[in-house]
Each structure stands twice: as structure tokens, then as C-alpha cells.
Simulated scan of single mutants.
Amino acid sequence: MTAGAGAGRDRKVDEVRRMLEGPHPPVPVDLAGRAVRRGARLLRLRRGVRRTGWWLAGTVFAAFLVWAGVEQPWLPEPAEVTPPLEGW
């Protein structure tokens, strides 16, 4: 390591210490209350998005079950040509 790299690091440490020892900016009195309200609002929003997503997924699943019950895609399609009647 060179002497310049160590000196640069010491200079940065000194600058940070001076900033922490200096006068601190004023903090708004209602900062904690605003943070709590914002957090609660974000939680409500996330909960609503999650519930809407699950509701949408359930609706899509129910629609798929109804479609599958009506269409029955696992059955073969009916023949378009009627076989000849023999033995009557």
C-alpha cells in the first residue's frame, strides 16, 4: 500500500468526524408521526394490492373451472361424418 492511499483514507475519516461533531440540522418535531402514518399507508396499500391479486387469481381459476366443465377439452371431438349403418 502506498503512503498516499493511507493518507487519503485518514483525510476522509477526519472529514467525517468533523461533520459529526459540527452543528446538526434541525429535525421537524412531527417527523416520527409522519413516518408512522406513511408506513401505515404503505402497509394498507400493499395489503390491498395483495388481496386484489389473490381475488383476481381466484376469479381466473373459477372461470377456468367453469370453462373446463362446459367445454370438456379432454373429450375427443365428435366425428363430422356418420359411419354407414350396416346390418339393419
Rank of each mutant, 00 (worst) to 15 (best):
R11N: 06
P28S: 05
L20A: 15
P26D: 13
W74E: 03
R9V: 09
L20R: 15
R51C: 09
P78Y: 08
P23C: 00
E77H: 02
P76Y: 00
L85E: 15
R34E: 03
P23R: 07
G69K: 05
R37E: 15
G69L: 09
P28V: 02
M1A: 13
A35H: 11
T82Y: 04
K12A: 15
L75T: 05
R11A: 13
A62M: 03
W88T: 12
G58S: 09
A7C: 05
T59V: 07
M1P: 11
R47G: 05
E77T: 01
P78I: 05
V49R: 08
R18F: 02
P73V: 02
G87W: 01
G6V: 11
V81L: 05
A79M: 07
F61E: 11
A32P: 05
L31M: 14
A40Q: 14
W88Y: 13
A62H: 00
V81T: 10
R41K: 13
P73S: 08
V36H: 07
E15L: 11
E21V: 04
G6K: 09
G39L: 09
A40D: 13
R51Y: 07
V36K: 07
L45Y: 06
L43E: 15
R11L: 12
G39Q: 13
D10G: 04
W74P: 00
P76Q: 01
E71D: 10
V36T: 08
W74L: 02
G4N: 11
V70I: 14
R46H: 09
M19W: 10
P26Q: 14
A3Y: 01
R38Y: 08
V49T: 06
R34M: 01
V81N: 03
R51D: 15
A68D: 11
